[in-house]
Design a protein around this nucleic acid. Structure first.
Lengths: 254, 254
DNA sequence: TGCTGTGAATCGCTTCACAGCC
DNA sequence: GGCTGTGAAGCGATTCACAGCA
């Protein structure tokens, strides 16, 4: 795509596999829950179940971080929480701006999962002058005109785009020009960014379409393989692959 | 996890690779945009750029669907839109329920990307009696008590969970018992479901944590490799791999 | 004995490179 | 000549299976 560049010659050195990085937040979440229940240690088997992956994968993942477990015993919960947090860079404070305060932007502003992980919503930005000053989640919305100043004054390096698709690229360009180097994009568009800027996207309609694909297939097999209609029974409780895990995540370091 | 089951022996037969399925919605989006601009044909190179992938991957993906292109020319836009829609099961109507009408649930209810792709929000469900009857996105919210009846009356097979983490598993169990076989989970929990039920998850805070990981690494390299601070320049416009394609996640503008 | 840590085998996806067709 | 379709090579991630240590 775009430039010919050998594509990712760097980022590989001395590194944790991208697939592993994508799972660390999952482990962290499970560990945090155990920590709150004051569980002191956990085995790879138990933790894997809580995180929804298999234990071999979990052990391999942890092996990239170092040897934090004790053979015959398991992992110390608190210690692991700390190590993973550090590895993910969550021991520091990350000021974040959210651009586009519609329904979704407001939902994100109100989302509790940020603060608890070191992310701080430094500002909310919207293009509608009518929104300016209105508080959302206790934070007054500011106008797009001040975007650059806001980014710089707050030392923001992570931006969240929750604007309509049409405005996304322009907002993205301004964020990047102002110094943002990581973008979480909720707008259904492919963003073009310079080297060195990471973009991750979240697109709900894509997830639904993937579900529809499998759903359709199920319906087909049902008629073909003559199986009863509604399951309802079959409590085999196999916590199936949860979403995009296996799916290679894909960020890109740039 | 859970049962030992050989883990997904099925789902594999006669199939399009999962990674390909996850990209089809991306191609569809790009093709729809071209269609709206009345572009009649497109080359793999052009379409790949619009979708944010490389052309070899795109051609390989399409090869799993069949041979829909013309050598020396490219792909017929309208025809491809149809073929991909059919493959994804979007030529039929998918009634969907959203459970948990907080900020996020409301944002999802208002999301326009559903209707345009064959998804129809059949009902909004919330546990708060105070919400009952209140219209959100023009649809009156119904109480959780009626969940089973709503699912059955509307023939719903896809459910979206946007409740707090604590309520998610219970809601999931009820959805599944009522006949739902595909679940899109926004709650930060691992859901356990019987065989035959698909779960995909979207967790915003996970995406942010992955960005933080790379952001932290950049900061480290900066000091180490003595590179200037803010980029701002370097317009190398390499539309890097956009997020969880192979992987995963998801959503919407608002 | 029990559970971690990890080489080796395997699997699936991506990329290459070019034959085949318009 | 140009662009698709695809075998084959390459590569990263997953899984296996067991050695190593508490």
């Amino acid at each position: 795509m775009a430039t010919g560049r050998t594509h990712r010659p760097a980022t590989r050195s001395r590194g944790i596999p991208e697939a592993t990085v994508a799972r660390l937040p999952l482990y962290l979440r499970a560990l945090t829950a155990l920590s709150e229940r004051s569980v002191p240690t956990v085995s790879s088997e138990e933790l894997a179940a809580a995180a929804g992956v298999n234990s071999a994968k979990l052990r391999k993942d942890f092996s990239y971080l170092g040897s934090y477990g004790t053979r015959g015993v398991g992992y110390d919960v608190e210690y692991l929480v700390y190590q993973i947090s550090r590895e993910l860079g969550l021991t520091q404070d990350w000021p974040v701006v959210i651009v586009g305060i519609g329904n979704l932007g407001a939902a994100l502003a109100n989302y509790g999962g940020f603060a608890s992980r070191g992310f701080r919503v430094a500002a909310l930005i919207d293009a509608d002058p009518g929104m300016a000053g209105k508080p959302v989640a206790g934070i007054p919305v500011q106008h797009t005109d001040d975007l650059e100043k806001i980014i710089q004054d707050n030392g923001v390096s992570i931006g969240v785009i929750a604007t309509p698709a049409g405005a996304a690229q322009q907002v993205c360009d301004r964020l990047v020009a102002a110094g943002v180097t990581s973008i979480l994009n909720f707008a259904p568009t492919v963003l073009t960014v310079p080297d060195g800027v990471d973009v991750r996207k979240v697109d709900l309609s894509i997830e639904l379409q993937i579900l529809a694909f499998h759903e359709q297939r199920k319906a087909g097999e049902e008629t073909a393989a003559g199986d009863g209609a509604h399951p309802a029974a079959a409590r085999d409780a196999s916590s199936a692959d949860q979403g995009p895990d296996g799916d290679v995540p894909a960020v890109m370091p740039a």
